[in-house]
Simulated assay, not measured.
Amino acid sequence: MSTEAIIRIAETFARHLGLTLSTVSTYAANDGKWLSGLKTGSSCTLRKAAVVTCWFSENWPADLEWPRDVPRPAIQKKEKAA
């Protein structure tokens, strides 16, 4: 997934819930500056992009349509501890 797509998803999510991008960044990436860094040209690893994108997919509001031109990752089922 491109950085532009991640930023678009994040901004859509933030706008819909009335949150700042830094708050969404804290929730999704555990770093309040991560998304703003991405927006200003910082790079990220494929692993971090996948983790953040999965977070958005798992926490996406039911009343908000996922952007049609952005592939949505499948929600991972969490295994219960034995």
Rank of each mutant, 00 (worst) to 15 (best):
S42G: 00
R15N: 04
K33I: 04
S57Y: 10
K48F: 05
H16G: 00
A74P: 01
C54R: 15
S57L: 11
H16L: 04
R72Y: 10
S57F: 12
F13M: 04
T45Q: 11
P67I: 11
L35S: 06
Q76L: 15
L35Q: 10
V70Q: 07
V24G: 02
E58M: 15
L46Y: 03
D69I: 07
K77F: 03
R47S: 11
T3E: 13
F56H: 10
L64E: 07
I7E: 09
A74I: 14
R68M: 12
K77N: 11
W55L: 05
N59I: 06
G37W: 04
N59P: 07
P67D: 05
L17A: 01
L38A: 11
K80I: 15
F56Q: 09
A74H: 14
T3F: 10
L19E: 06
T40A: 06
L17N: 06
N30C: 03
Q76F: 10
S43P: 04
I6V: 15
S42C: 11
I9V: 15
D63E: 03
H16K: 10
V51G: 00
K77H: 13
A10P: 04
L38D: 03
R68I: 13
R15V: 04
T20K: 02
R47L: 09
F56E: 07
T26H: 08
A82F: 13
T45G: 08
A82W: 14
K80P: 00
L21C: 07
N30S: 04
A49L: 13
M1Q: 08
L38Q: 12
H16D: 03
A28D: 08
A49Y: 07
A81F: 12
E4S: 11
P67L: 08
L19V: 05
D69E: 11
E79F: 14
S25W: 06
G41H: 09
A74F: 14
P73A: 09
E4T: 13
A28W: 07
V52D: 05
S36V: 13
R8H: 13
G37V: 05
A5F: 01
K78C: 12
V70Y: 07
R72H: 12
A5C: 05
G18A: 02
T12I: 08
A62T: 01
F13H: 06
P71Y: 01
I75G: 02
F56A: 08
T20E: 03
Y27M: 12
S22M: 10
G37N: 12
P73I: 05
A62G: 00
K80M: 14
I9W: 09
K80S: 14
L19D: 01
V51W: 13
W66S: 06
A29Q: 03
K48S: 09
K33E: 00
Q76S: 12
D63L: 01
S57A: 15
T45F: 05
L38P: 00
K48I: 09
F56C: 10
K48H: 13
A14E: 04
E11P: 01
K39M: 11
G18H: 01
A50L: 14
F13L: 07
D69F: 06
L46I: 02
T12V: 10
A29R: 08
S42M: 14
H16I: 08
G37K: 03
A74Y: 12
R72W: 10
L19M: 11
E65V: 01
R68N: 12
